[in-house]
Amino acid sequence: MTLEVVGLSGAPESVYRLLVSLGEMSVNEVVGRVDLSRLAVVSALESLAEQGMISVTDGIPLLYRATPPDVVLVPQLKRHAEALDLARTEVTELVQAYQATLRMQDTSHLIEVITGAEALRQHLQHIQSAAQTEMLWFCKPQYVAMPAGSNTAEFEGLARGVRYRVLYERAYFDDDGAVTNIAKAVEAGESARSVPHLPLRLAVADRAIAICPLVPGGPQGSPGQPKAALIRDRSLLSALIALFERYWEDAVPLDLDGSGAITGQTDASGRTPLSPMDRQLLSLLVAGVTDKAIATQTGLSRRTVQRRINGMLQLAGATTRTQLAWQAARRSWL
C-alpha cells in the first residue's frame, strides 16, 4: 500500500483500488474479492463515500463506483508537492543563514576565504585536478571566475574516470556558447541536469572539500573582488551535499539527440506534455492500479504499458514510480 501520503490506507485503500480496477460493484462482490470481513468492507465504503472517493448508484443491490483518481488523488498529491517545495525553500534559507553566521564569527578553523577571480579560478582547477572519484557542481548564469568553455580540468577529470554531476540553472543556457559547451561536456561523459533556479554557486570535490561564494563580485557580478569559501568542515559539507542531492533529484536530465544537440530542457513553466493515453496511464498509476489491470482497462498489452511507464520515468528523471507520481504532480502533468 502506497497511498498514505494522500490520506488513504488500510481497508479503504484496498477497496478503492479494487473499484478502480474492476468498475462498479456491490457490497457482496467486494466482499468476495478482498480479504476483509463484510463489516470491514461496509465501513470502508462508508469512509470512502464521506471522502468523495466513491459514488453510489440507485438500485437493488446498491452499486459502488470509484471517483476518477485524477479528480480526487492528484489534487492532494499536488498539495503535498507544494508543501515539500516550501520545506526545501526553508532549508535553503537555513543553510544561507548558517553561512552568514559563520562569516560574522571566527571561521579560520572551518573555512579558508578566497579573494579575487584569479585565485578562485586557480582553486577550482586545483580541486578538480586532485579529485579522484566525483565532482558536484551548481552552475548559475554569468560567470565569476571561469567563462563557459574554459574549464579544461573537467575534461581531464572525465578522462581519468572522475564522475561529474552538474546542475545548470535554466538561465545559464542564455549565456554565449553555453549550450555548445554543455553538449561537449555531456558527450565527454558529464551527467547534466537542469532546474529552474539554483540557490548558489557550488563545487564539491570527492565530498571532502567545497568552494562556494560568500559575496558576489567578479567580471560578471557586482563591483569588487569576489570572495568565496574553501570549506573542509564536515558538518557544513554534509549540508551542502544534501542540498545538491535534493536539487538533483528534482532536476530534468539533459542528453544529446542524434544530431548532438542538447535535449531534455523544459519550457518556462516546467511542463512537458504527455499524450492522452500516457495521461490515462499516469492517472491509473497514481491510484496504485497494477500493470495487468491497467492493460485490461486501456486495451494495451502489459509490455506496452510497462514501456510507456518507463518512457515517462525517463522523461521525469525518476527512478521509481513513486518519484514519477510526485514529479507528475509537481510539473502539472495531470
Results as ranks from 00 to 15, higher is better:
215 V>M: 14
35 D>R: 14
269 S>Y: 12
334 L>A: 11
326 W>R: 15
82 E>W: 10
175 D>H: 02
225 Q>C: 12
320 T>P: 06
250 D>L: 11
95 V>M: 05
166 V>P: 08
320 T>M: 07
328 A>V: 00
53 M>Y: 13
54 I>F: 03
76 Q>S: 11
30 V>M: 02
306 Q>I: 14
253 P>Q: 07
44 A>V: 01
16 Y>K: 06
175 D>P: 08
288 G>P: 06
239 A>R: 07
33 R>G: 07
216 P>Q: 07
49 A>V: 11
186 V>A: 04
210 A>Q: 04
51 Q>N: 12
248 W>R: 03
262 I>M: 06
62 L>K: 13
104 M>F: 10
141 P>K: 11
181 N>H: 14
110 L>P: 04
311 G>P: 02
176 D>I: 12
179 V>H: 06
12 P>S: 05
156 E>F: 14
77 L>C: 06
83 A>Y: 05
45 L>W: 02
296 T>L: 13
104 M>R: 15
70 D>F: 10
63 L>E: 10
186 V>Y: 01
76 Q>A: 13
96 Q>G: 12
251 A>L: 01
95 V>Q: 03
149 G>A: 07
52 G>R: 10
293 A>L: 09
319 T>E: 14
322 T>W: 13
272 T>R: 14
114 I>L: 15
120 L>S: 14
189 G>M: 14
103 R>C: 08
306 Q>T: 14
307 R>G: 07
334 L>G: 08
53 M>I: 11
181 N>T: 12
204 V>Y: 00
175 D>A: 01
80 H>G: 05
31 V>N: 04
201 R>Y: 09
12 P>M: 10
256 L>Q: 00
176 D>K: 07
15 V>L: 04
39 L>F: 08
294 I>N: 00
165 R>M: 06
28 N>D: 15
330 R>N: 03
322 T>E: 12
315 L>H: 06
32 G>R: 06
300 L>M: 08
268 A>Y: 08
174 D>A: 15
284 L>E: 03
34 V>D: 01
177 G>T: 03
234 R>T: 15
238 S>E: 15
151 N>V: 12
211 I>Q: 04
93 E>C: 00
138 F>W: 07
50 E>A: 15
15 V>M: 02
135 M>D: 13
35 D>V: 09
253 P>N: 03
261 A>D: 15
291 D>Q: 07
266 T>A: 10
200 L>S: 13
90 E>W: 10
128 Q>C: 15
172 Y>N: 03
305 V>F: 10
10 G>W: 01
32 G>K: 01
234 R>F: 13
284 L>H: 04
145 A>C: 03
159 A>N: 11
303 R>L: 15
197 H>E: 13
167 L>Q: 01
32 G>S: 06
86 L>N: 08
303 R>M: 14
77 L>M: 05
